[in-house]
């Protein structure tokens, strides 16, 4: 089904119809406030992606909010150690619904090549993850792809959020 239909009639000029679910999903998709939970190397690529060359702003997702209360996408960027894990969990819990989590970089996905006593083997042991972006660190192109996947997911979820 199409997202929107333009009603072309004499009675209702310039009106489009859609389902509320689609409209909300569509609006949410383009108004992402991210919380960059930047810990490590991936932060460098996150900076590159967010700055003018790759320009995250094109996707309506550039506005970082450093208060979890105001953010709806938690971008976990970089390795999470056992010492950091409780902090991540707490920030996730402070965020208001609907909320999504992006695991940015292979350390957040699986622990990467840090298979040792100090590193959490994937943040999905701590918080639920919506999109995984592997790479060590992922190139900005991969990040944009991941973001578009998340937007698609948000659009499809529509009104109910998650």
């Amino acid at each position: 089904m199409r997202l929107m239909d333009v009603v072309d009639s004499e009675l209702l000029p310039g009106v489009i119809t859609t389902r509320i679910d689609d409209a909300v999903g569509w609006a949410r998709k383009y108004s992402i406030f991210t919380y960059p939970f930047v810990t490590a190397c991936c932060g460098m690529e996150f900076m590159s992606t967010a700055c003018s060359h790759y320009d995250l702003d094109r996707f309506g997702a550039a506005f970082p909010r450093f208060s979890p209360r105001q953010a709806d996408v938690l971008m976990v960027v970089g390795t999470i150690s056992h010492k950091m894990a409780p902090v991540l969990r707490r920030i996730y819990e402070q965020m208001a619904s609907p909320k999504w989590v992006v695991a940015f970089g292979v350390c957040t996905c699986t622990g990467g090549f840090y298979d040792n006593y100090a590193t959490v083997q994937g943040i999905d042991k701590i918080v639920p993850v919506d999109v995984y972006i592997p790479g060590c660190p992922p190139r900005p192109e991969a990040v944009l792809k991941g973001l578009m996947l998340l937007q698609e997911k948000i659009r499809k979820q529509g009104w109910k959020g998650q």
Binding site: H82, A85, P86, N116, Y117, K125, I126
Partner: peptide, 22 residues
């Protein structure tokens, strides 16, 4: 951890997240 008899993979419980939800 850097003692030679501490195995590199010996993980300890994750604090603050073991509440059943995770």
């Amino acid at each position: 951890p850097l003692r030679k008899d501490y195995p590199i993979g010996k993980r300890q419980p994750l604090l603050g997240v073991d509440d059943g939800a995770a």
